[in-house]
């Protein structure tokens, strides 16, 4: 059973639908006990980092999330909250990944638009999470902030600057892109997570 962490950051439906499509069982919960005992944990999220962080705190989820030992996957804001901190709302985050989340900068001359929205490549991929995925495969992004490169980077992407499009530290995984909207490649990545 996969616990999808519900901390009131809006729509969990697309993640649920994606798990449904690949035949994975899940439970939507904000109960630390249920999260602790789940086989896997998925931390989704949309919205603004500092208020999302506050919602985790209010629900008393910070400690449980940082001490989990089963596979954990953060998606988009979910991954950003697993970093040290974010420029968005000057948020102090969970500090699982040893990197910071910074704003992407638009550049009209180079056609760099922010938010970074659409299909872009994941490069330098290295992790069981990407088993069966080609280096340079396209995945779907929607975001204005992104984590810097670090030792825990398992995929990088380029939009103005190069950033971590996926991170891994021990049992903790994160993707800046949305596997639940990334077509077949996304299905493979979610399937891989379910095999961890």
């Amino acid at each position: 059973m996969t616990a999808i962490v519900d901390y009131d950051t809006g729509n969990l439906r697309s993640v649920c639908n994606a798990l449904g499509r690949i035949g994975a069982e899940y439970i939507i919960t904000s109960d630390p006990k249920v999260i602790r005992s789940a086989r896997r944990v998925l931390l989704p999220g949309v919205g603004e980092a500092s208020s999302a962080m506050e919602k985790l705190r209010v629900r008393g989820l910070c400690e449980v999330l940082t001490t989990l030992t089963q596979p954990v996957l953060g998606i988009c804001i979910g991954m950003q909250l697993m970093c040290r901190g974010s420029e968005e709302g000057d948020a102090r985050c969970l500090g699982i990944f040893d990197t910071d989340v910074r704003r992407l900068m638009p550049c009209k001359e180079e056609g760099i638009k922010v938010p970074h929205m659409g299909w872009n490549r994941v490069e330098e991929i290295s992790s069981p999470l990407f088993k069966g995925v080609d280096n340079g495969a396209f995945v779907y992004f929607v975001h204005s902030f992104a984590p810097d490169l670090c030792n825990e980077t398992i995929a990088s992407s380029q939009h103005g600057r190069k950033f971590s499009s996926a991170l891994q530290k021990r049992n903790f995984y994160g993707t800046q892109f949305h596997p639940e909207k990334s077509g077949i490649v996304g299905d493979i990545i979610l399937h891989n997570f379910m095999e961890l």
Binding site: R21, Y140, G183, G186
Partner: peptide, 8 residues
């Protein structure tokens, strides 16, 4: 559609 389609 949302249940069955894996792109935006």
């Amino acid at each position: 559609i949302a249940q069955n389609i894996n792109i935006p």
